[in-house]
């Protein structure tokens, strides 16, 4: 059974995972950079990653109980993400691949979130709702790739919630704190509900919510409740459009915001009303992590996807729908 070591460093998390193509996860060690104040500073996050990299790597090998020699390939998330952060992971991956003479496997971070969710939930061919600090995408597999059916036109859902929480003094991470207050809110305040065809737009919602907060006309509980209701309903609506359009019968939630019980509940209700199945990724694997890169790298490696070290430039703007997904073609052929 070939083992792949995967490295994640696209944003605030530096992680190393070890996994096989069959979905055995032998190690998943992660270290998250926390800014003292404000949002992520790419250069500081990159410094954090370089500092913790050797320790995280060693702990992952210890957890898996394997030596570097028994690893068959090195996978790395080359994008999308923050350039300085990506370079830390890529540098370590190139070094290990060169040192050990093992193949290097390029992994798209978004594809990894999808694959780990399919593994974790057992759903075969779902409409995927991928929500995190930097991403909000509705996607599903069509003809060899994950096609984007809808996405945010400006900021991501996680970014909306984190920024709001920070500005009103709730701290990081934003989603659980805002949801906690939202549970005590009762009155729905009208906020911009911006669904444009298949896409959503969150920046106007953030501006409006912050303006209302500063005007102090409403309780923070009611404001959080209205923000959560509006932002999540927009997302579920476009997910439902994708489900109706593609005729698929499964919905999966993945990414850092997948830990939200409120969002899960809304998606589950939508899916039930349409006779579809719903599941969210295991909370342990929801945020950025090394295991998802290792597992997706193992799938790619089994399909013969490798990259020469000299071509392994980082790809900060690497779009999900540019990535060929050859292992899905094989699985769907095997099923039919």
């Amino acid at each position: 059974m070939p083992l792949v070591l995967g490295i994640e460093s696209t944003a605030h998390t530096f992680g190393v995972g070890i996994a096989s193509e069959k979905g055995e996860i032998l190690a998943n060690v992660n270290s998250v950079y926390r800014p003292i104040a404000g949002g992520i500073k790419p250069s500081e996050a990159a410094e954090h990653h370089s500092r913790v990299a050797p320790v995280v790597l060693r702990r992952a090998l210890e957890a898996a109980g394997v030596s570097l020699d028994s690893i068959d390939a090195i996978a790395v998330a080359l994008g999308p993400g923050l350039g300085p952060c990506l370079r830390v992971g890529a540098t370590l991956a190139r070094y290990l691949a060169s040192l050990l003479g093992k193949p290097l496997v390029p992994v798209n971070h978004a594809v990894a979130h999808i694959e780990i969710a399919r593994l974790s939930t057992g759903l075969k061919d779902p409409v995927v709702v991928y929500v995190a600090g930097g991403n909000t995408v509705i996607t599903t597999f069509v003809e060899g790739r994950y096609r984007v059916f809808g996405e945010t036109l400006d900021i991501a859902l996680g970014n909306l919630m984190d920024t709001f929480a920070r500005e009103v003094g709730l701290g990081f991470p934003g989603v659980p704190k805002v949801e906690e207050l939202a549970a005590r809110g009762k009155n729905l305040i009208p906020l911009p509900y911006s669904v444009k065809g298949q896409d959503v737009s969150y920046s106007g919602l953030l501006t409006a919510a912050l303006r209302l907060y500063r005007e102090k006309r409403y309780s923070l509980e009611d404001l959080c409740y209205s923000l959560v209701e509006t932002a999540y309903s927009m997302l579920v609506e476009v997910a439902e459009r994708a489900l109706a359009h593609t005729g698929k019968s499964e919905v999966v939630l993945t990414g850092g915001v997948a830990r939200s019980p409120v969002l899960s509940d809304k998606l589950a209700k939508m899916a039930r009303a349409r006779g579809a199945r719903f599941a969210a990724v295991d909370p342990e694997l929801a945020g950025d992590n090394g295991a998802m890169i290792a597992y997706t790298g193992a799938l790619a490696y089994a399909s013969g996807l490798t990259i020469p070290v000299e071509e392994s430039r980082v790809r900060p703007l690497w779009r999900l729908d540019e990535v060929e997904v050859p292992w899905r073609r094989q699985t769907s052929a095997a099923i039919t």
């Binding site: 729905l188 509900y193 309903s233 579920v236 609506e237 809304k266 998606l267 209700k269 939508m270 009303a273």
Partner: peptide, 13 residues
């Protein structure tokens, strides 16, 4: 009517 949306929001939309 969408059960996943708050009633007030759903009615408005």
């Amino acid at each position: 009517p969408k059960v996943y949306r708050a009633e007030q929001l759903d009615a408005h939309l």
